[in-house]
């Protein structure tokens, strides 16, 4: 397995507030990591650290091999979008290619063809000329996912992909991600622990520290040991080992 990103004993945060303490994580090809943890525990800080939006205060983040610019595709939380901004769906998807040449190159015919392919794959080709604000939450998520994968990054990071999404798209989304996972590593941040653990291969519990759990089956007592206070969704009578009940497809 080839390593893509390695975080070594890194601390990170904002101004004078350290959010993540001495965190280590290695992301390798074909990984599918679910990132869980309480609000304010540092999930988004971890994402920002990997995306190089904030520098580590201590320790280091190492990126291995290939084109550094095109290493990571990113799906941000959709609710941060300015819905009245004048940009078309097609342009949003194309913007995923801006990393090449730091965005100074013009789009070629093959870039545009590639954008069309992605739009079709996402099922929003008919909406490509609409402005982003005219889309529903789910359609907007598709456009942003298209932007994240058009450059075929080696690592795809998704921040809360299942907020504002209809059930139909949620199912399609996980299906698509499993398919993409054959080509790229995926890291998915989510509140919805019950759902994501069905799909991910491993789990990172983030609450100021990071505990890496090399399985997608996690119990309430393990979470407690990881100092990661989240409530697992309970099904029926088994209150503490719920996630073990889901169907697993580990490889």
């Amino acid at each position: 397995m080839q390593e893509i990103v390695e975080i070594r004993n890194a601390s990170a945060g904002y101004s004078n507030e350290v959010v993540l303490h001495n965190v280590s994580l290695s992301i390798q090809e074909k990984d599918y990591i679910g990132v869980i943890g309480p609000n304010g525990g540092g999930k988004t800080t971890l994402v920002k650290l990997i995306l190089r939006l904030i520098p580590p205060m201590q320790g280091e983040v190492i990126y291995y091999g290939g084109d550094q610019r095109n290493l990571i595709g990113y799906l941000p939380q959709v609710n941060k979008t300015d819905r009245s901004f004048p940009i078309s769906v097609n342009e949003v998807v194309l913007s995923g290619l801006m990393s090449a040449n730091a965005g100074l190159r013009r789009f070629t015919r093959s870039d545009k063809a590639r954008a069309m392919e992605i739009l079709e794959m996402m099922g929003i080709a008919h909406l490509r000329k609409k402005s982003i604000g005219e889309l529903s939450g789910g359609q907007m998520q598709r456009a942003f996912l298209g932007r994240a994968i058009i450059s075929e990054p080696r690592l795809l990071i998704l921040d809360e992909p299942n907020t504002f999404v209809d059930n139909k798209f949620e199912h399609d989304l996980y299906e698509l991600l499993s398919h993409l996972n054959e080509k790229m590593a995926i890291m998915m941040v989510s509140h919805d622990v019950g759902t994501i653990t069905t799909y991910v291969k491993t789990i990172a519990c983030v609450n100021r520290n990071l505990h890496y759990h090399r399985s997608n089956i996690i119990t309430q007592s393990q979470l407690a040991a990881y100092n990661c206070p989240i409530q697992l969704i309970t099904h029926g009578e088994v209150p503490h080992t719920v996630l073990g009940e889901h169907h697993h497809n580990q490889d």
């Binding site: 995306l51 939006l53 550094q68 990113y74 940009i87 913007s95 801006m98 730091a102 100074l104 789009f107």
Partner: peptide, 22 residues
């Protein structure tokens, strides 16, 4: 000359930063 990059930075600055755009 820089229409697209101006558009992309204006739309989503964080995304542009993550892509190492100046």
């Amino acid at each position: 000359r820089f229409y697209h990059i101006i558009l992309f930075i204006a739309f989503d600055e964080e995304y542009a930063r993550a892509h190492r755009v100046s």
